[in-house]
């Protein structure tokens, strides 16, 4: 599908979700509690068939935490960006997508380590890079007087 067809298809399928053309790819923004159900459908729908999770990244915005999923379909070769937001900055929790794309298991561990977003139903959430005593350095409110020099 081309980007326009994809946007049209998604808008009709998910009236609640915010579908728009981003700076490069179609984007769909959803809330954290509906994200999992949406993505199960994105993979299982034969006309969409997003079977390849290219990249999963977390972003800390001032008002909310966001997890960005870059999805590609290996059969249709279309590309989609899914964004799941959660307003709870203190204890952000999202449903894991490791049951849909196994590779998410490892990307989610990285996000948990660096941004402190917890994923429920995750098979083995652990910190990959940093020690338990560290905070979550990619959060904007992260303070480290020893290692980070503010200019």
């Amino acid at each position: 599908m081309t980007n326009e067809q994809l946007i049209a298809h998604l808008t009709s399928a998910y009236p609640d979700a915010n579908v728009k053309q981003g700076s490069q790819y179609p984007e769909i923004t959803v809330s954290h509690d509906t994200a999992h159900a949406l993505m199960v459908h994105l993979k299982s729908d034969a006309s969409l068939a997003f079977d390849y999770l290219v990249c999963e990244s977390g972003v800390d915005y001032p008002a909310f935490m966001q997890v960005v999923y870059h999805l590609e379909s290996t059969s249709h070769r279309h590309f989609l960006v899914v964004k799941a937001n959660t307003e709870n900055r203190e204890n952000p929790v999202l449903d894991t997508v490791a049951d849909i794309w196994p590779t998410a298991e490892f990307h989610e561990c990285e996000i948990y380590d660096l941004l402190g977003i917890t994923f429920s139903n995750h098979p083995g959430l652990r910190r990959y890079f940093l020690d338990d005593t560290w905070g979550h350095p990619l959060r904007k409110d992260f303070k480290d007087d020893i290692h980070v020099v503010e200019r």
């Binding site: 981003g22 290219v54 990249c55 972003v59 960006v81």
Partner: peptide, 21 residues
């Protein structure tokens, strides 16, 4: 400009992606 940009290239080991917000 404000926005999100994703660029993929083929590195020697596979797909290398840069996601800039």
């Amino acid at each position: 400009p404000e926005g999100e940009f994703y660029q993929r290239v083929e590195s020697a080991r596979g797909e290398f992606g840069v996601y800039i917000v």
